[in-house]
């Protein structure tokens, strides 16, 4: 009887799960394996192209400093955007979680995370209009300030950073807010009644308790920024060459897919190391 039931259950489990997981395998996991394979080829194995196995795509990364420099540039961009977003976003999450109550809190929270779910490309395009020379920012500043200023941030690193912070800031606000909301107000009151000042409360009570959420937000920002290419392209112009844009070029301009695959895999390795390092904190943030 129990074996019949077990078999029936197994059939149900398989029939419910397999469509979704076969789809994920075909569209995500097989492609990643195919990319690993490609990264060890000398040329694409389509048509009658000559190809053989080689590690020269990876050697290219280590022999010339170009790619390593660009990867470091991308990592620095990721760190800059993450640090700014955390510094700007955490106080905002704190205000939302602790200083505002009731219906208006829900509405404001929704308002903060709503842009995040709208089209990222369109939002970067918005900044292109605001930041360009003779653009809205320049006109606006000149209307307010008594002296003439010349603001042309377009095609510069600050423009890329502004655009990326705008894109990913809601992440850290979201995760910090959820963590802060879980902190019992009585705990803060208790610390205060025992004579702790505001800084001590922040440093010894609030930060440690909300750290998992803060870290989760930081990782969620850092990872996509390291792999970004569209934002640097639109807002950075000529200074917008990063590791991501080089990978993009291999696939859409230079057509050196094996090299692109190798570079993608190096990027993936960086991402995985970061996710693995942060995973204990991420797991705590989940619960």
């Amino acid at each position: 009887m129990s074996t019949v039931l077990a078999r029936q259950n197994r059939l149900k489990i398989v029939s419910l799960l397999s469509p979704a997981y076969i789809w994920l395998t075909v569209a995500i996991f097989l492609p990643l394996s195919a990319m690993l394979y490609f990264s060890f080829l000398s040329d694409v194995p389509f048509g009658d192209a000559e190809w053989h196995y080689t590690s020269e795509n990876y050697q290219a990364f280590f022999q010339t400093s170009t790619y390593a420099t660009l990867l470091w540039k991308s990592i620095k961009l990721g760190l800059t955007v993450t640090v700014i977003s955390v510094l700007v976003g955490f106080p905002c999450a704190y205000v939302l979680a602790k200083a505002i109550k009731g219906k208006s809190r829900e509405a404001l929270f929704l308002l903060v995370i709503l842009p995040f779910w709208s089209n990222s490309l369109v939002r970067i395009f918005c900044w292109a209009i605001v930041l360009r020379g003779n653009g809205v920012l320049e006109l606006g500043l000149n209307a307010i300030l008594p002296f003439e200023v010349d603001v042309n941030l377009m095609f510069s690193t600050p423009a890329i950073v502004i655009g990326l912070v705008h894109s990913y800031l809601p992440y850290v606000i979201l995760t910090s807010y959820l963590a802060l909301q879980a902190i019992d107000d009585n705990l803060i009151d208790a610390a205060r009644s025992m004579g702790a000042n505001k800084l001590t409360i922040l440093w010894r009570v609030i930060l440690p308790l909300s750290l998992p959420g803060l870290l989760a937000g930081a990782v969620l920002i850092f990872v996509p920024v390291v792999g970004s290419f569209m934002e640097p392209r639109i807002l950075g112009g000529r200074v917008g060459t990063y590791f991501g844009t080089v990978i993009e070029d291999q696939f859409v301009a230079v057509f050196n897919w094996p090299l692109g695959a190798a570079l993608s895999f190096i990027l993936l390795a960086v991402v995985l190391v970061i996710l693995a390092t942060a995973s204990p904190a991420l797991r705590r943030a989940q619960t």
Binding site: V223, F251, A261, L268
Partner: peptide, 24 residues
């Protein structure tokens, strides 16, 4: 756990991998 790679891996990597595989 298998649900996380599609969310966590940058779309640049996923996208280029899909391109290679679908061509293959």
């Amino acid at each position: 756990v298998m649900l996380f790679p599609p969310i966590a891996i940058p779309w640049l990597i996923t996208g280029t991998a899909m391109l290679i595989f679908f061509y293959g």
